[in-house]
Design a protein around this nucleic acid. Structure first.
Lengths: 204, 204, 204, 204
DNA sequence: CCATAAACGAGACGGTACGTCTTGTCTTTCT
DNA sequence: AGAAAGACAAGACGTACCGTCTCGTTTATGG
């Protein structure tokens, strides 16, 4: 049993890559993830199927890269620091602002279908899941970690608090509502989350 | 175009239904959700494919019912109120106990594969998602709502707090870690979540 | 390693079989054998590919049966004994008549393309070759054997002659010219063959 | 629409040509004609695919030339006039000897697979067929024509006989048995053919 | 003696077809 | 009438080759 030799990445067609990304995102948006097929992506991109299988292992893999690429392009287009969390000194205000922006993004249909599709695939497909988390999710969460550390330095957050856990108090509820549609997603909701998380729900 | 007459449910074979549930759960456990096929379920259950399509609309639908049924059977076997939340008067202790039990369940491989599969399907398939949430998830969350209301009556939780939102502070982080594998799931972790949620992370 | 169970021939769709035969013969006639594909036959016949692979092992196999079926249908349509060799008592005249009819058939484009295709496939594919010879070719040659035996009884052919070999003297040259295009095929030519074969080419 | 400039044959790599011939013949012998691919030939010969397409139009074309070349090399190795027909004055003996040699060749596995493959391709592919006949078959048949002419001069064959037709009486039956496997190929058989052909089958 | 142009190896590309697999429907036969 | 069985139309899967098209790299004169 021999592995076939890895393809020569230096000779890869950039045009095809682009066309495949575009086709994949377009199809997922139009017909949904399950009805998006490798064959369909190839046809739409004007590309042979083998060109897809040469560089990606599955439909999910294509979509993951396409989505990462989309993120990068939008980031580049939008300016330099697209996902940084502001640090005005007012922790509650900063978190509310960022979560409101996240709400906007989650409700943007351009993102919704492909990212929900990827998240779903990631639940069931370990490899996709790991990559989704490590390339997309965790880097964003680390921004919250940084902001919370700064807040600890400023005395706004107890120093015995683990920022990696603390951030989940406001991020995970939003994530779950979005993923599993367990409730509406609004500015009010995220503002409330921040308040509850920062001050707790017990009387003081 | 006429709808075909609905099948007569009174003549339905209970034996087939059972066999289909069992086969579906067994297959999902053995080969995973994507490689579980309607054909495979029918063959394993010793049932014609049409018998499946007559009563269910899809593989996901079969699995959803099979899973609900499993839950009911286990509930019946275990006693009357398996998922009630204790009310000892110590809110923190009660929540920690329930969350520790939930951790055990989430890590039980008999549950893990099918429920993760259903959750994944629910992300992408609206109908399955709604049913998953309304039949499985929300009833459990309402137990937390009830316990938090009781805590409000006892003065352990501020009365201006919305219990339906508040419960997400400790439930959603656990859900997200489990669904998306964003971090380890331990008793320590859930204990910490309860503490942060109840008292907040800001210094007092 | 288990063989999959043989399909149940009693439940076979006669309509599909017909449609496949027709499509196969039509396509071979229109685009030639090499550009006739299983996919094309299925599409033209309005049939799933699996229905072809369920009952036949290859494109050649389909075409072989289609051709045999065509022969049977034409035979039935044409009357009872389509390919019998007349026995008027005049061996030379009888053979010339039959060979002239054969010339007509070989030059009929409806037969030419598929039978040449089958013959070609038979050269390279043992199974097809055996079946082509045993089901199509040899039965025809046996008619010549019978006629030559009758001629031996009548004293028109030496009794030490092997009819199975003797018939090749006039049949094989025609076959080779047709198969390999080594020369023109005309009534004159076949008449000449019969004369040479019957009387030899040495002076008497 | 411009034709691309014909490649410069003077700069052609003789080493590649040889390697391609060898690879083509070896592959046809090992896996059969249909499973021999241009890609396989190129890989085996250590040659780029384009080098094949630059000089030949198809797999059949490569194989035809490879086979012609093989013939030439064997001829050169074996002596000067390998395929001449002896002329001892005894026509029957001379023909029998040559046909026996042909039987040997036809049964030699080194020749069998590629020549059968070429013959098959020639049935279906006009261009290959013409070249196969004109370059390989007809030159051999002309040797028989010459020998029969000489026999006519000697009075051993009637002068009204067309040698080009007459030779088919013993050559074509052998050809058909070999091509279509319609019967065994033996010395006895070819001897009988010569006798029947020379003297006819009718009583004298 | 190098410049340069063609043939060369390698292999990525857009395609077509393969033979397999699964879906959801339809049909037959049995109970 | 429901069920077991399984054939059917449809169409995606992932693979194999096709013939074309770059890429550098020999190679082999010819200025």
């Amino acid at each position: 049993m021999v592995d076939k030799p890895a393809p020569d990445a230096t000779r890869r067609s950039e045009k095809s890559r682009r066309a495949i990304y575009d086709a994949a995102l377009a199809l997922v948006g139009e017909v949904g993830y399950p009805r998006t097929t490798v064959e369909g992506i190839a046809a739409r991109a004007g590309v042979g199927k083998q060109t897809i299988y040469r560089w990606w292992s599955s439909k999910a893999d294509v979509l993951l890269e396409a989505f990462l690429d989309l993120g990068e392009r939008l980031a580049q287009a939008a300016g330099q620091e697209p996902y940084a969390i502001p640090d005005t000194g007012d922790l509650a205000a900063d978190l509310k602002a960022v979560l409101r922006a996240t709400v906007d993004e989650l409700l943007d249909p351009r993102f919704e279908v492909p990212s929900r599709a990827l998240a779903a695939e990631g639940l069931v497909n370990d490899q996709v899941g790991r990559e989704f988390v490590s390339k997309l999710l965790e880097p964003q969460l680390q921004l919250y970690v940084a902001r919370l550390r700064s807040a600890q330095d400023a005395g706004d957050v107890r120093t015995d608090v683990d920022p990696r856990v603390a951030l989940e108090l406001f991020v995970s509820p939003l994530a779950q509502r979005w993923l599993q549609r367990t409730g509406p997603i609004t500015y009010d909701y995220t503002d409330t989350l921040v308040e509850y998380a920062l001050h707790g729900i017990a009387p003081r």
